[in-house]
Write a protein that binds this DNA or RNA. Structure first.
Length: 273
DNA sequence: AACAGCACCTGTAGGC
DNA sequence: TGCCTACAGGTGCTGT
């Protein structure tokens, strides 16, 4: 389940791998992978020379020297690989072939991933919030919140901040000592600052570790990340907190599993008691 | 109009 | 062993 750090890792590798190459053919093995007109997608990409690969939130952007721009969203199980294993072949959804004979494979077991053509780079993904890699940017977004929705749900809202998913939302809230059900608009200035300083740290650390591999995420070279070795709460329900020894709890918030330490992450009402 | 809930999908894990 | 169910969760749509 690639989030910002995983996508960033993929983008860096992908850029090295395909920059300067020219696409000679696009094969859609599962056409619904492409949002919008399939024929136009293939037509515009054929002959495209890759100028660069970028990231915006959890979206991978590929730009051609002529300005052609398309995005890849991996959703849960998607991956882009330079070589395809026999096990992956039955989940191959799209194949890009380059003029030098190499290829790029979009593999996605659950068929949730999406490829999409945009008129230009500036028009892509218009509803995404800012990148949460700088404390000042995050703080501005947090200060604007007027909703009573749980802070956990708000961190997953891509229009508020782009790129945070379930793993890093839970990890950031642990680092901030904040209960995931805390109403977003109830955060005080000190709490906003704490969360704003912690989110970029958690994401940057994970980027340095080339992401978190739990189930499906792989780099372009089909390698695992290492951040899963450093998770404090995500996926640790019933295990003891590294900080205080309490048992990590798992609750559902808007249908999404949320992991937290009931002792390190108190609700506001409990803190005042 | 904010917000909740579900559809999209399939592999995997656990229970019996 | 094999069948069944629950679960994984990002996004976009629908309904309230």
């Amino acid at each position: 389940m690639p989030e910002l750090p995983e996508v960033e890792t993929i983008v860096r590798q992908l850029c090295r791998q395909i920059k300067g190459k020219t696409i000679t053919s696009v094969r859609l093995l599962w056409p619904r992978t492409v949002t919008g007109c399939k024929a136009e997608f293939c037509r515009r990409l054929r002959g495209m020379t890759v100028a660069g690969v970028s990231r915006r939130g959890k979206y991978i952007g590929v730009e051609g020297v002529d300005g052609t721009f398309f995005t890849v969203h991996l959703r849960m199980t998607g991956k882009l690989v330079g070589e395809i294993s026999s096990a992956d072949r039955k989940h191959l959804r799209t194949q890009f072939t380059f003029s030098d004979g190499t290829a790029l494979y979009f593999v996605d077991a659950r068929k949730f991933g999406r490829l999409r053509l945009w008129t230009c780079r500036g028009q892509a993904c218009p509803s995404l919030g800012p990148e949460p890699l700088r404390p000042a940017v995050v703080l501005t977004s947090l200060r604007r919140l007027k909703t009573r929705r749980p802070i956990k749900s708000v961190l997953l809202d891509q229009t508020v901040l782009a790129g945070i998913g379930n793993i890093y939302a839970d990890e950031a809230l642990f680092q901030a000592g904040m209960h995931p059900l805390t109403p977003a608009a109830s955060l005080g200035e000190a709490q906003q600052q704490r969360l704003a300083s912690v989110i970029p740290k958690v994401l940057r650390q994970a980027i340095l570790r080339r992401g978190t591999t739990l189930r499906n995420y792989r780099t372009v070279a089909d390698e695992s990340g290492e951040n899963q070795e450093h998770l404090n709460v995500y996926g640790r329900a019933g295990e003891s907190c590294f900080q205080c020894g309490a048992s990590i709890e798992k609750i559902l918030i808007n249908g999404r599993s949320s992991h937290y330490c009931p002792s390190c992450q108190k609700k506001m009402s409990d803190v005042r008691r």
